[in-house]
Structures are given as C-alpha cells and as structure tokens.
C-alpha cells in the first residue's frame, strides 16, 4: 500500500498502529473557518486508549478524522496521520475503503441511528464481511451468524432476520459490534459506545467489548466523557479540551493528574465513598486554549 521500504522486523513491532502528529481539523463555516482540532498528537499501540473531554472538545472529530469520515466541509491536516505505514492523508479513496472495516473500524454511539432501518441486521453484518471477502451469500451468512453468537446473542438465526427497530438498544449495540469486528480489524474506534444505552446493559456491552478486544489483540480508541468508566476500562487516558490535548496519563494514575482542567473534571464527579456538599463547577482559564 505504501512505497516506503519496510523497516526491520524489530522496528515493525515498535511501529504504532495509529500515529497522529499535529492533527488539525477545521470546518468551513458560512462565516469563516472554525478550528475544531488544533494540533493533536498521540500514538496507539495494542492497548486501550481513552480520549475523554466534554462535548465540543473535539474527541469524536479525532475518531472520524482517523477514519477520514469527516463531512466535506472539514479540512484535515497533519504532520503525520498514519495507520501503521499507510499515510491516511494521502491515501486514495480506494485505499481508504480497503482500510475501513478491514483494518480500522468504528463503533458508533446509538444503534437506533447507526443501523440501516430498512435492512435486516443480519444482512448488514454479512455486508460488512462481503465487502472485504469474495465469498458466497451463504458463507457470509454463516460468518454473520457465528459473529452474532460471539457477541452473546442467544438465537442468532432469529435475530438475523430482524429489522433494527425490532431489537433493543443493548442488542442493537451488540449487533453493531458484530458488524464492525466481523472483518477482523486491527484498530477499533469506539465512539461513546454505551452512552445511548440503559445503565443496566452498559456493563454487559463493555464486557463483550473487552473480551473481543483481548481475544483479538486489538488497538482500541475509546472515546468517552465518563471518567469512571475510562479509569477501569482503559490503559491510557488522553484528556482533551477545546480541540487540544491537555494531558495524557496512565489510567491508573488518573487521580494524580496535574492540569487544572483534568483536576476540575475529576472533582466534578460525585463519589459514593466521600461525602460532598456540592459538586464544583470547572473554573475555566483562557490560557488553556494555548497550553501544551
């Protein structure tokens, strides 16, 4: 896919799955240009990397920029934005299509909107497989059924022929996971995969996701606004504010963050083990916009 000569095997192991250096995304608005992502750099290995931040911080835009799925009005630039040794910015549409689903995949927020309402769920899962593999309809169907089983759906044959409006949110998200992992990608971007779900099914979905990630040795970018979730689920955490990374920490050290914004985020969480009168509101500082 790329003409650059392959480095030694040792280096290839070291090579990150995703590497972003000074990633910037701007949107062409009616009046001027809006900078959504303003110089973000990180790399992803075989790990679970969380990106947290409040809404509007640009965390979802980062995910979509990696998939190159921003709307046409978006202007994406970077010093480097790559999957392994493939430059995502200069890749052709065809190359990108080969990457999507097969190498990099994404689980979206709400299965109610991200599943095609007029196609059966089985058809949609099978399509994900058939897009990258030349197989018969029958084999694609078998694969899809196996995958439905893998996400712990009890009667896959029945579910296969259901339409999205006939399944619950939790099952919809399992279907989404099945659909996005059926072609064995190496990188999975999960964009708030549980925030549209009932609290009771969130943990189930996370457990399934966790299993799948471990089993397949995936690199995962977990986009969320839920610090507690991220703390227990991920290895490393990137904290974003207004299109920039303010801090990167190991999930275990999350309580020791330095940046005032990160501290603010943590302090505004309610806790069961400590009595707190009133949750503080984050005190913002314009200097954060320039920092790091």
């Amino acid at each position: 896919m790329s003409s650059t000569p392959r480095a030694s095997d040792a280096a290839a192991v070291q090579m990150p799955l995703i590497e972003a250096r000074d990633l910037r995304v701007a949107f062409q608005m009616q009046r001027g240009v809006f900078q959504a992502i303003r110089g973000v750099s990180f790399s992803l290995g075989q790990e679970k990397l969380a990106i947290v931040g409040e809404s509007g911080s640009g965390k979802s835009t980062v995910g979509r920029a990696i998939m190159r799925l921003n709307p046409p009005s978006a202007i994406v630039t970077a010093e480097r934005l790559a999957f392994k040794d493939v430059d995502l910015l200069s890749a052709s549409r065809k190359e990108l299509r080969r990457l999507r689903g097969r190498h990099i995949s994404m689980i979206m927020q709400d299965p109610k909107y991200s599943l095609n309402p007029v196609a059966t769920v089985g058809e949609q899962i099978a399509e994900a497989y058939r897009t990258h593999h030349k197989v018969s309809n029958r084999e694609a169907r078998e694969r899809a059924l196996t995958m439905l089983e893998a996400v712990q759906i009890r009667s896959p044959k029945r579910v296969y022929d259901l339409y999205p409006h006939q399944v619950s949110g939790g099952m919809g998200q399992r279907i989404m996971i099945a659909m996005m992992l059926i072609s064995d990608p190496e990188v999975l971007i999960a964009d708030e995969p549980t925030s549209a779900l009932d609290v009771t099914v969130r943990l189930q979905i996370l457990a399934i996701l966790d299993d799948m990630v471990k089993e397949r040795g995936l690199g995962m970018i977990f986009i969320s606004h839920d610090l507690n979730l991220v703390r227990s689920f991920c290895d490393r955490v990137i904290i974003m504010y207004a299109g920039r990374i303010v801090e990167t920490v190991a999930a275990a050290d999350l309580d020791n963050v330095q940046h005032p914004y990160s501290r603010g985020l943590l302090n505004s969480l309610p806790r069961l083990d400590q009595k707190r009168d009133r949750l503080p509101v984050i005190q913002r500082d314009d200097s954060w916009l320039e920092a790091v």
């Binding site: 998939m67 799925l69 549409r93 299509r97 080969r98 990457l99 999507r100 689903g101 097969r102 995949s105 994404m106 979206m108 927020q109 709400d110 909107y113 991200s114 599943l115 095609n116 309402p117 007029v118 196609a119 399509e127 994900a128 897009t131 990258h132 989404m176 659909m179 996005m180 072609s183």
Partner: peptide, 27 residues
C-alpha cells in the same frame, strides 16, 4: 444519517452506500 456513515465505516463502496443504503430508505 448515521447509518450511512456506518456503511462507510464498513468500507462499503460509495455506489452501494448511495443505492443499497440511502436510496433503499427512500424507495
């Protein structure tokens, strides 16, 4: 709609995104 993005995430070709996904919804 989001399901169109989801189809693109799967690597579905633009032709199929248009006709098998979006158009199928307006038929």
């Amino acid at each position: 709609q989001e399901y169109v993005t989801a189809a693109r995430v799967k690597g579905v070709s633009e032709w199929n995104v248009i006709w098998h996904h979006a158009f199928r919804n307006i038929r």
